[in-house]
Write a protein that binds this DNA or RNA. Structure first.
Lengths: 192, 192
DNA sequence: ACCGAATGAGACATCAATGTCTCGCTAGAT
DNA sequence: ATCTAGCGAGACATTGATGTCTCATTCGGT
């Protein structure tokens, strides 16, 4: 009896398939199952063996995103240091999954009417708490609700990913543009 | 011979159909032609008589959005008053088409590889010019490029539309949240 | 060297959406 | 009152993606 990581043989790495699917779908949301399979370098039948259908694939992508986001949030240590610094660490940690995020956000129209996956609620709460902490510490203005700042963060990350992919913003400026707009805003502040 | 507005009889109002299609598609981007027809209160065959196919429908929606955005930009008088005030007028004028905008932005993955519709380029240029003007007048920081601020504006409007539709932000706060974040940012400024 | 599990390729049925057509009807013009 | 353009409803063929199956092959473990 052989058992590798998960107790059985694994020729195709499920995670690797998901990542290439994410890369493709974030560029072409309507990509076919066959295109996803080819992009991952596997056959369509094999893709079907691992993910029952397109829905299952999207669900798996969502789970992957949730898991990686939780990890990124942990690593960003949202409750340490100033809220400013925590936001910077957060954006930096989220950059690698910006394309996947923007795909899932648009795909989340699937969940309209359905129960919201509470995994997203947990993440939203963590970000909201961060902004709330910044407000309580006097760093952030209190007239913008934490909920809105959370939405704005996602929106700006999506816009940034799109702008970079379209060549309107240099990839190296991704974090700076988002963080500076979110934290500092377009209006010039006398402090700074 | 009879000729009304456009030289012939019109039982179904093409613009009205497009607006209801926009309302539906912004909520459910994968809506079927049949669903679009039902939402507009017409038959599927009739919808097909007016728009050859789904592509043609999306193109028409795009043209409608371009036309209404141009009008909104004109009415916002982007080159009058301070850049701040112009941005406020701009966001106010764009609010009614926020859902349509967010739909088209995600749908614009269709144009990947194709030629970008230069109508969008014109609009982008007008917004970019506004931000550039604000920079030259010393109101806006110069380390955020006009191109990025333009993308951010679209991104925030999309995020705002989504947040409102999802009940996370009150509709009446839509303009305020977007404008204040875009102009003032999350970091509290001593002036204000 | 052997064996079995998993894969790739392809065939196949299914299904949903699309696009086209016909036909009976109605509203508006004359 | 009549006529006709345009509509709704439905039937129909077509298309493309999906999901399932089979079979030969390959790769890893023993």
């Amino acid at each position: 009896m052989s058992h590798s990581v998960y107790g059985r043989l694994m020729s195709v790495d499920r995670t690797q398939v998901l990542h290439s699917a994410a890369a493709l779908l974030s560029r072409k949301a309507t990509a076919t199952m066959d295109e996803v399979a080819r992009a991952a370098g596997i056959g369509r039948a094999t893709l079907h063996r691992h993910f029952a259908g397109r829905d299952a694939l999207v669900r798996a992508l969502e789970q992957l995103a949730l898991q990686e986001l939780e990890a990124a949030f942990d690593e960003a240590r949202l409750d340490e240091g100033t809220a400013d610094e925590a936001v910077r660490r957060l954006v930096a940690g989220m950059e690698p999954m910006a394309p996947l995020l923007s795909f899932l956000v648009t795909e989340n129209q699937l969940f309209e009417g359905d129960q919201q996956n509470d995994g997203w609620a947990r993440l939203d709460a963590r970000v909201s708490d961060l902004f709330r902490r910044g407000q309580e510490q006097g760093t952030f203005r209190i007239d913008l609700t934490p909920a809105w700042l959370t939405e704005a963060l996602y929106g700006l990350i999506g816009a940034g990913a799109w702008a970079v992919q379209d060549g309107r913003v240099a990839a190296k400026d991704f974090q700076y543009m988002i963080v500076e707009l979110l934290l500092g805003g377009a209006r010039r502040s006398v402090e700074k």
